Amino acid sequence: MAKVDIKMPEEFLQKISRLGSEFDAVAESVLEAGGEVVLARVKGNLSGVVGQGTKYDSRSTGELERSIGLSPAKLDRDGNHNVKIGFVEPRSDGDSNAKIANILEYGKHGQPAKPFLKPARTASKSAAITAMQKKFEEEVEKR
């Protein structure tokens, strides 16, 4: 059996120990700060691809763009804090926003893919990490 030792920087561990019982609240606010950065990038990418490069005039109502949002930070069954970017369901026409977003992202027969989620994730990774680090430092200084 393999053995793994993961060593965290001492300074980081001291900051976490200072938080004590407030760690969960801080973790949630830090994740939401990073999620807001990614959400802004996803919205920008989505508005850039909707209705662009089509043979016919766009029939976009803007409902998909309005439905995208960020979930509050929640604790999963494994003890990890998560935030999610997703779409409010259902649409006014009864269709699914997630289905339409999937067709945009990956395309379908006769409709080329117009990725907006994956490029947003890639492009906003470092900015989200920076925002989360900044928020973490602010929260540690408050306590």
Score class of each variant (00 low, 15 high):
residue 63 E to L: 13
residue 58 S to H: 11
residue 80 N to K: 05
residue 82 N to V: 12
residue 54 T to K: 08
residue 38 V to C: 09
residue 110 G to P: 14
residue 117 L to W: 01
residue 93 D to L: 10
residue 107 G to Y: 11
residue 122 T to I: 14
residue 62 G to Y: 05
residue 52 Q to K: 15
residue 49 V to Y: 12
residue 14 Q to G: 11
residue 104 L to T: 06
residue 10 E to S: 14
residue 132 M to G: 00
residue 82 N to I: 12
residue 113 A to K: 05
residue 123 A to Q: 09
residue 136 F to A: 04
residue 2 A to G: 08
residue 130 T to Q: 14
residue 115 P to C: 07
residue 45 N to F: 01
residue 112 P to M: 04
residue 40 A to R: 10
residue 15 K to A: 07
residue 67 S to R: 12
residue 52 Q to E: 15
residue 128 A to R: 01
residue 30 V to P: 00
residue 33 A to K: 03
residue 25 A to L: 06
residue 131 A to W: 05
residue 81 H to Y: 03
residue 12 F to A: 13
residue 28 E to V: 01
residue 74 K to P: 00
residue 31 L to W: 00
residue 99 K to S: 14
residue 61 T to I: 09
residue 121 R to K: 11
residue 111 Q to T: 09
residue 143 R to Q: 09
residue 51 G to N: 12
residue 69 G to H: 09
residue 58 S to W: 02
residue 128 A to G: 08
residue 109 H to G: 11
residue 54 T to I: 12
residue 25 A to R: 12
residue 53 G to D: 15
residue 57 D to I: 00
residue 103 I to D: 11
residue 71 S to M: 13
residue 44 G to C: 08
residue 90 P to T: 09
residue 99 K to A: 14
residue 135 K to A: 03
residue 134 K to C: 03
residue 142 K to D: 00
residue 19 L to Y: 07
residue 62 G to C: 10
residue 32 E to G: 03
residue 121 R to F: 04
residue 97 N to Y: 02
residue 104 L to D: 05
residue 26 V to E: 00
residue 60 S to F: 02
residue 76 D to V: 02
residue 97 N to I: 06
residue 33 A to I: 02
residue 81 H to R: 03
residue 123 A to L: 07
residue 109 H to L: 13
residue 79 G to P: 08
residue 128 A to M: 09
residue 39 L to F: 08
residue 141 E to Y: 13
residue 34 G to T: 00
residue 33 A to C: 02
residue 112 P to C: 01
residue 22 E to L: 10
residue 57 D to E: 12
residue 57 D to N: 11
residue 105 E to F: 04
residue 89 E to Q: 15
residue 134 K to F: 03
residue 12 F to I: 14
residue 116 F to D: 00
residue 18 R to C: 02
residue 90 P to N: 09
residue 22 E to V: 06
residue 84 K to D: 04
residue 56 Y to D: 07
residue 95 D to E: 11
residue 46 L to D: 04
residue 31 L to R: 00
residue 43 K to G: 09
residue 98 A to H: 05
residue 47 S to I: 07
residue 27 A to C: 07
residue 56 Y to P: 03
residue 74 K to Y: 13
residue 1 M to C: 08
residue 93 D to F: 08
residue 43 K to Y: 05
residue 142 K to C: 06
residue 101 A to D: 00
residue 14 Q to N: 14
residue 70 L to S: 05
residue 10 E to N: 13
residue 130 T to P: 01
residue 87 F to H: 03
residue 123 A to F: 01
residue 74 K to I: 10
residue 141 E to K: 15
residue 6 I to F: 14
residue 82 N to T: 05
residue 137 E to V: 11
residue 131 A to S: 12
residue 124 S to Q: 03
residue 102 N to M: 14
residue 126 S to Q: 10
residue 95 D to R: 14
residue 91 R to K: 13
residue 52 Q to H: 13
residue 135 K to M: 06
residue 112 P to E: 12
residue 13 L to V: 11
residue 58 S to N: 08
residue 115 P to K: 06
residue 94 G to P: 10
residue 122 T to V: 13
residue 14 Q to H: 12
residue 48 G to E: 15
residue 51 G to S: 10
residue 114 K to R: 13
residue 12 F to C: 07
residue 119 P to S: 05
residue 29 S to Q: 12
residue 77 R to T: 06
residue 134 K to W: 04
residue 63 E to I: 09
residue 40 A to H: 08
residue 69 G to Q: 04
residue 65 E to Q: 11
residue 18 R to G: 00
residue 88 V to T: 12
residue 131 A to P: 06
residue 65 E to D: 08
residue 2 A to H: 11
residue 34 G to N: 02
residue 31 L to C: 02
